[in-house]
Amino acid sequence: MAIIENGYLRGQIGNLVNRKVGNKNVVQTKPSDKIQQTRWTEAASRDFGTASSAGALIRRAFRPLHMDIHDSGMHNRLQQQMQRVLRGNGKQLQGMLHVQRGNIQRLVDFQFNEKSHLYDYLYFDPKVSFETNGTTSIALPSINAQRNFFIPKNCSHVILKIEVAGFNFRFKNFQTIGSHEMEFPIYSQNGEGTDPQTLIFERQDKHHDSIVVSLSILYITKNGSYTFLLNSEDLNPVGIIAAYNL
């Protein structure tokens, strides 16, 4: 608000400040608190947005595995990991970083639940290989529930879930290429394991720029006709086991 005092205008109207200097009425623009972004900060902001949207895409793609049961910092950890992916193939112009020009393999071993690292609960290593045509092969050894998994209290069955997803990060979309689920009773295998097998997944969409493979372990207990899931925020092993730039 401004007022006229002794013939002079004093006070503020909008972003204009009126004051008396000697016998003159001076009008000035009020300085802005907003700091204008430089082209460098704008470029860094674009790269941050690229990493953030890519991380969100991965979270959505593998929600059937992590089921939103994860530590509170997972979103930030994944965004930071995607920033490392963007910087994984030499220096590039700031503000122009893209996943397909980075190194998606830097995602390998990312844990969706920091409180339960996958390989603290899985006692074998799936062998994943990628072909240039986009075919994904996953070789599994003979598996026995008691020998190859950590078994929590009250658990009667273990479920191993594998999912392969293709991503087009530039257009912010993904497609599930394939999934596989295996259930293992803990006390009825009599020390025997499954036969070794190789899973083959063929992609149909030729527009993917990356393929990512995730694995999770579900713990259940069966009581008559009821099945209870034992996974919780403290026990939900799920992680990325392989990734490939096409």
Rank of each mutant, 00 (worst) to 15 (best):
P196K: 09
L215T: 13
R203I: 03
S214R: 09
E163C: 06
A165S: 02
E202P: 02
Q175A: 13
R170K: 01
F167H: 10
G178K: 02
M182D: 10
T176Q: 01
G193Y: 04
Q204Y: 15
I162P: 03
S188I: 08
T194H: 11
D205P: 06
V213K: 09
I211P: 04
D195I: 14
I200V: 14
R203Q: 06
F167K: 00
F167R: 05
G178R: 01
V164A: 01
N190P: 14
E202I: 08
F184V: 09
V212L: 03
E183M: 10
Q204E: 15
T194R: 12
N168R: 00
I159W: 11
E202C: 05
D205T: 00
G191N: 15
P196C: 07
F184H: 10
V213P: 04
L160D: 06
L199D: 13
V164E: 02
G193A: 08
G193P: 10
V213N: 03
D209E: 13
S188M: 10
L199Y: 12
V164R: 02
Q175F: 06
I162D: 04
R203T: 13
L160F: 01
E181H: 01
M182L: 07
L215M: 12
R170Y: 01
Y187S: 15
Q189W: 04
K161L: 00
S210R: 00
E202G: 13
S188R: 02
K172V: 00
S210K: 01
G166I: 01
S188F: 12
V212G: 09
S179R: 07
G166K: 01
I186M: 14
N173D: 11
P196N: 08
R170I: 05
R203W: 10
N168W: 09
G178P: 11
F167W: 12
S214F: 03
P185W: 02
I162H: 08
Q204M: 15
F184W: 08
F171P: 00
I200A: 14
P196F: 09
F184A: 13
V164Q: 00
N190A: 10
E181F: 03
N168M: 00
I186V: 04
G191Y: 10
L215Y: 09
Q197P: 12
D195K: 12
E192P: 06
G191R: 12
R170M: 12
F171V: 06
F167D: 03
F201E: 12
G166Q: 07
F201D: 02
Q197W: 10
K161R: 12
V164P: 05
F184D: 07
K161I: 13
H207T: 15
I200L: 11
V213L: 07
R203A: 11
G178W: 04
I159R: 05
G193E: 15
E192N: 11
M182C: 15
Q189I: 06
V213D: 03
I200G: 14
F167C: 07
F169S: 00
Q204L: 08
I211G: 10
E163R: 03
